[in-house]
């Protein structure tokens, strides 16, 4: 099978790897780039666990063909924070007990970070809208919404 070379920016770093024809971006990020932060939940775009941003827009990696991100800026939850220094959003999730089993958390973080970057002062309704594509089975959503809202009014991250 012909391999397709894909060059992209992944969490700020230039990366290149081979994709298989028809390979989805989630599989490419996890196996090709070794970034396990996007999760495989349903594989059909219903749960949001694989949410990433492509050129600043939230996208479902499981429904995106890997070869289509050539030259794009792809960001995942693993790109939040710097080593032990957490993104304020990650800290807010900790402070508000916004994770239990944690499987939805990377997708939630990416959706929330994208919201805060384009709208640093969202209303509760806007937060709800932003995470409405991310299923959570443990928290009842309230702690997640509270965590995101606690950052409303703060300056967006770089």
């Amino acid at each position: 099978m012909t391999k397709i070379p894909v060059t992209l920016t992944h969490n700020g770093a230039e990366r290149a790897a081979f994709a298989d024809p028809g390979q989805n971006l989630l599989d490419f990020i996890r196996r090709g780039l070794g970034d396990l932060s996007p999760k495989y939940g349903c594989g059909q775009g219903s749960c949001g666990a694989c949410t990433v941003t492509i050129d600043g827009e939230t996208r479902l990696a499981c429904l995106t063909l890997a070869e289509t991100v050539e030259g794009c800026d792809v960001r995942t939850a693993a790109g939040l924070g710097q080593g032990a220094t957490l993104d304020p959003l990650q800290q807010a999730f900790m402070d508000h007990f916004a994770a239990q089993c944690g499987y939805c958390t990377p997708g939630m973080l990416v959706s929330a970070r994208a919201l805060l970057d384009r709208n640093p002062n969202p209303t509760r309704e806007e937060v709800v809208e932003a995470i409405s594509g991310n299923l959570c089975r443990c928290t009842g959503y309230d702690p997640i919404i509270d965590a995101i809202l606690s950052l409303a009014g703060r300056k967006a991250s770089a």
Binding site: C42, Q44, S46, V128
Partner: peptide, 12 residues
């Protein structure tokens, strides 16, 4: 058969 048809309350 999938999350599209298995109804659960969302954040709204």
């Amino acid at each position: 058969v999938d999350f599209d048809h298995y109804a659960m309350p969302g954040p709204g």
